[in-house]
Structure formats: C-alpha cells, structure tokens
Design a protein around this nucleic acid. Structure first.
Lengths: 191, 191, 191, 191
DNA sequence: CCATAACCGAGACGGTACGTCTTGTCTTGCC
DNA sequence: GGCAAGACAAGACGTACCGTCTCGGTTATGG
C-alpha cells in the first residue's frame, strides 16, 4: 500500500491493497494457506483494518470475485441467435482458466472456499453462469427452436459446469474436446 | 479406544479408533474444524500414533471413505438390462445423502478435502461412480440400444455427479425431481 | 493474571504473572519439571507471550532472581568495621535458605539451571555475593588489619560459597556450626 | 554394540555399550540433551534393556563415574609426608579437567545431574575427594604438624572443591594461579 | 477553529493447533 | 529369560494464526 492516508473515512487505498493481496496470495498459495495475517502483511495494513470491513476470508474472496480480480471468466453470454457459437464465447474463457495449471489450482481454492462459506458458493455459481446466465441463454434457444422444448433449461448449465468443476477437483481437468462432445450431447437441436 | 495393546506391530484397535473418530468428527464439525489433536483426543490415542501411519487429514479421510465409514452410497451399479431402473438404485442412495442436511454438509466437507488433497478427490470420484461405474453402465446401455450410440458414455456420469455436487456447494441441493428431469434429458433412448 | 490489558505495548500484568508463576513452580516442582507450558497455564497467559519476551527457562529464572522473587538472600554486606559481625548478617540469610528443605531444593534447582545456562550462573554468583560483595568486604577488612595482608580477598568468597553450595548438591547441607568453624579458619585476623 | 548375544543372563556387551554411549553422549551434548532414546540408538540397544537395569539417567551416570568412564581425576591422594606436594598430584588432574573446555562442560553436566539426582551428587563428591580422601590427607597433615591443630580438616576439602566447581558453573573456571593462592591461604602450616 | 470521532499501521494479548520429540511401559519374535 | 525393535498414551517443545484489543497518530467534519 502506498499513499498512506488516515482519517475518519474509509481508505480506498487500504481496501484496494487488501483485495489485491488476497487475490495474489490465493493464487500463489491456495486457500488453506491463505491467512489473515499474511494478507495484512502483504498489503502493508493492520489486521484490524481487515476485520473492520470483512468478517472472514470468505468475504474477502467474494469481494475479489465480484471485482474480477481472480479469474478472467466471461459472466455475460451473448445472444446472437446461434446457441453453439454463443456458448463457445463463454466456453473459451472457461477453458482458458481450467487448462492453465494455475487457473485450475485457483478454481480448486475457490471450491474449497465455497465448501466452507456459502456466500463464496453463491458468488462462484454466479461467476460460472450457473445462476442465471446459462439458463437464460438456453431458454432463449428453446424459443428459437435451437433446443428441444422439453430440455431442462435450468439444469443444463448445472450439468456443464459440474462436468468442468468436478474433474478439476481430482486434478484431471476435462479437455476441450471432451467438453465439446458433452455439449454435442446435451445441447441437441430440437427434434 | 479400549484394550490398550502395545507392541512392535500395528495396533488394530488404535487404527479403528482413529478412523472412527475421524468419521465422527468430520460429520459433526466439518472439514476445517477437523483437527489432528481433536481426533487423537476423541480416539483416546497419542498424536504420534496418528502421524506414524497417516501423513495428513486427507489420508485419514481417504481411508475412511475406502472403508465406507462416511457415507452409505452404493458404489456398484446393477445391470439388469433396464438403464433407468438400475440408475435409480444408485440415485436413491445418492439422493438420500444429499437430501439429509447432515449428509449434504458431509459432502461439502469431502469436497473441501478434495480441493486441497488430490487423493481425496480421486477417492471421492470413485465413490460417486465417476471413475468407472457409471461409464461402464452407460456403455452397456449403448450396446443394448437403450442409449444413443454417439452418447459420450465417459462424460455423462461426470455431468450427473457434477449437477449433484455443485448445488450442494451453494447450500441448495438439487431436488430429486430436478434430478429426474435432468436424467430424462441426458439419458435418452437411442433416437 | 487479571486486568487483561492488550495493546501494542508490553503488558506489565502479563510480565508479572509470568515471573510469579515461574518462581512458584520452580520452588514447587524443581527445575527439570519446570515447563514453559506449565508456566503459561499457571500464569493464565499464552505461550507466545512468554516466548515473545524470554528466549528460555533460564532467562525467566534470571529475571526472577534479579527481582528477588526467589530467595531472601542479602546481596549487600554491611561494613561496620567488624568483619565477623558483618559476615554474620549475610550468613544468617544464607543459612536460613540452606537450612530450609524447600530453600535447599530451590538452590539445587538454581544450580541445575546455572549448569545449562551461563547467564543463570552469573546471576547466581552475583546473588551469593561471589561477584563483588564478599571480595569488597574482605578487601576493606584487610585495610583495617582484620585480615592478613596476603589473604586472597578475591577468592575467599568463592571458597565460602562453594563450601555452602556443594554439600547442598549432595543433600547434606553444611550446618551453621561447621560453617562457623570454616570461617574461623578462613577469616583469621592478621598476624 | 556388536556380537549380539542373547540369552537368560545379563549381556556384558550390552552393559558396556550402554555405559559407553552414555559417557560419549554426555560429553558431546551435555546433560539436558542426553536422552534415553539417544543412548539406546547410540548403543544399538533396545530401550527396555536400559530400563531393565537402570532406573534413570542419573543411575547411568553414576555407573559411568564409578568406572572412570568420564573424567581422569585422581581419587586417591598420596601421602608422602609433604602436604603441598601431595595435594599438587591431585590438583593437577583436577586442573587438567577444568582447564579443558570439554572437561569444564562435562563437569557442568555432572553438576546438573547431581542437582536433580542425589546419588550423582554423592558419587561426584566422592570422585572429587570431598567425601574422604581430602579430609584424611589433611588429618594426616595435622598429625605431622604441617597444618594447624585447629584446622577444620573435614571442611577444607569442601572449600577447595567448592572454589573449583562454582566458577565452572558461571563459565569462568578458576585459574591454576588463583587456585594456588587459595591453597596458600587455606593450607597454612601450623602456626 | 478546534474538538472529536472514525480511520489507519502496528502489534501485544489469550488461545488453539501444528508436527516433532521424548518418556516409560508393553509386546513380539529371535536366541 | 535376556535381547533388539519398536508401537503405544502422554505430553512438552517452539511456531504460526486466530480474532480482540490498545496504542499513537492522522484527518475530515460539525458544534
């Protein structure tokens, strides 16, 4: 942290330094080696300044996710009318993360965090599109007859994201090819 | 532990007491509140006796899983010729676990453990059938024309398990109905 | 410990509670049963608070000695002009300690501590007058013709203290009578 | 230990290996780093074999002392008729030990052991001549008019040995010169 | 315009748990 | 029955963090 600025209003510099340190240390050392004390030292900040604004590691991580400090994953999914093409935009950013060893490790850390902090789980679900983005896109595809009318639009995203996350846990991430084959099966045109 | 039995060979009583305590405490307190010291005390055992045989919490947990001390999930999937009926046998045991709040919490703990210990991830994948059981059953179904020939038999299990696990992370487990709807879509007869 | 007082400056209450506990436990249990953990528990203090300020048991003990928390031994020796009378003032406090079984045990503990920690040895020597007090008094006596001019003033104290300490080690403390006989021989008037 | 010889009678080889290891480790690492386990490993012996025959570290050390495995100090003091000359024989062996840093450290270790084990204290007193040897020699000197009739023959040895041991504790051993000066004062001819 | 209140970095505090080491007892299997 | 080997329950070691609490100091605001 630089530009030490004290006073009765919240220091933006401190906030930024803390989230930055959190993201950096999470990526470098993993979730279980992420300590409040380490973050404070890395950020050049007193511990109390962290506890004043965030109640837990999980809260720090959700804030990092909200501000995109952790992963370059597209949250929005375009709707150009071509389902598979649109999905690929999203997929590419996901694959980029999962294929990189560091990215996979980071994702594992996020899952660990999610497992013990529900809010992280919510935020992670949203980031991966499971919450809304994928469902909405699939519903749109149904309306355009690019997806069978009885397809479970609210669940397909779940299955796709699950098929991505679960192998990451076991250290053998799904390959782009496999992912494409799965999509071919899941996202079949109406009929 | 009872029947204190020392000697130059491994004490079965100690081993059993330790794994038992691990399973009990993991279910009661969750993964991040599971401590080596707590296990030792609960098992009535010296810490060194744990460290002598297991290098980490993860190793204890994989052993518990291997011996079925944690979850009553069917690993074997029957093959009577009716895919959906056979899947239901497996599904029921999975749903029973996921629907119980304690079971869901335990599953979250296992995911947390898997996220920081690859071996736990492997063992968890195996327990949930992702490793082999589901793939083999799907392959058999293809041969019996109950599943499209070009279905990605090695990935369907992944998608199903993923769709189960991921919502558990966010504290809103998938409902049996939703799961059935997803299966209807994923496991369609040959078309 | 009472009056829990945290903050970025050293807590006098913690310091006092720790030294007090050290003195109490050393007297009660002896040096080799004196543990850092026991001191922390007795003082109602975290172990780190001890290690923050003292590197070892020895350092705790020297501090206790410096503050007279262990033994009521006169360090100063008066100089009224009558050597034997002045020595008796000092002797009496030493005899009081050595004659009491608890005092002898405590002295043995200090010797054990001194044997493995030089600083304790220094402090113990000082406390027993060997460092300066006795030598100075003897030198003064020489100037007043109460002690032979060629008496080894810097060594007489050593011999006296040694004759006191050594029997304590073997659990048969020197008796006051014996000590007086020895002094009669050692501290003979000039001539 | 070599020549592994089991059987229903005590193994002399084991006994020797254990005492040898004790002496070696005591000299190398000091009393407080001397562990039963370390001795067993160094001697190539099971721990039980030690505990079967010796109840404590102290007992091992007294046995070592009894067999002269630790220090080359003359226990017998000759009586040629010349007190100072005879004392010098003994003194020389003592000075040799005290002047060598290793010897001084070993002596400190013995004092530490004596402080917590009375038997070691007894044995140490005997080894240093305090028990009998010096007293007897002084008594003989009185009879030959080389020492004042009213000299405390039973205490002089105490004072001498004390003046040697105590400075060793504080890491500043008495010098041979100082020791000689002290003797000049203590052991004056009858006058 | 100055007191006051909230912020800041720093870090001490009572604790819990870590993973290692040693203790003294007990058991196994060989001799 | 002695022996080497070593597992066992117990518990201390010194370190790392936890989350709480002061400490001085800085700075914006409101009486």
């Amino acid at each position: 942290m630089s530009e030490h600025r004290n006073g009765p209003v919240r220091s933006a510099a401190a906030r930024d330094a803390i989230l930055d340190a959190t993201a950096r240390l999470l990526a470098k050392q993993g979730y279980d080696n992420l300590t409040m004390e380490g973050i404070a030292k890395e950020a050049g900040v007193g511990k109390q300044t962290i506890y004043r604004w965030w109640p837990s590691r999980g809260a720090l991580i959700t804030d990092c996710m909200s501000e995109g400090r952790l992963m370059p994953i597209e949250i929005e999914i375009p709707d150009t009318g071509h389902l598979r093409a649109d999905l690929n935009v999203w997929l590419e950013s996901v694959i980029a993360v999962v294929s990189d060893p560091g990215g996979a490790a980071l994702l594992r850390s996020l899952v660990a965090a999610a497992a013990e902090d529900g809010a992280v789980g919510d935020r992670l679900a949203e980031m991966l599109g499971m919450d809304q983005a994928l469902s909405l896109r699939f519903a749109s595809a149904v309306r355009m007859d690019q997806l069978s009318e009885d397809a479970p639009v609210d669940l397909l995203g779940l299955a796709i994201v699950g098929a991505i996350i679960v192998p990451v846990l076991a250290r053998r991430p799904i390959s782009p090819d496999e992912l494409r084959r799965l999509l071919d099966h899941l996202v079949r045109p109406a009929g």
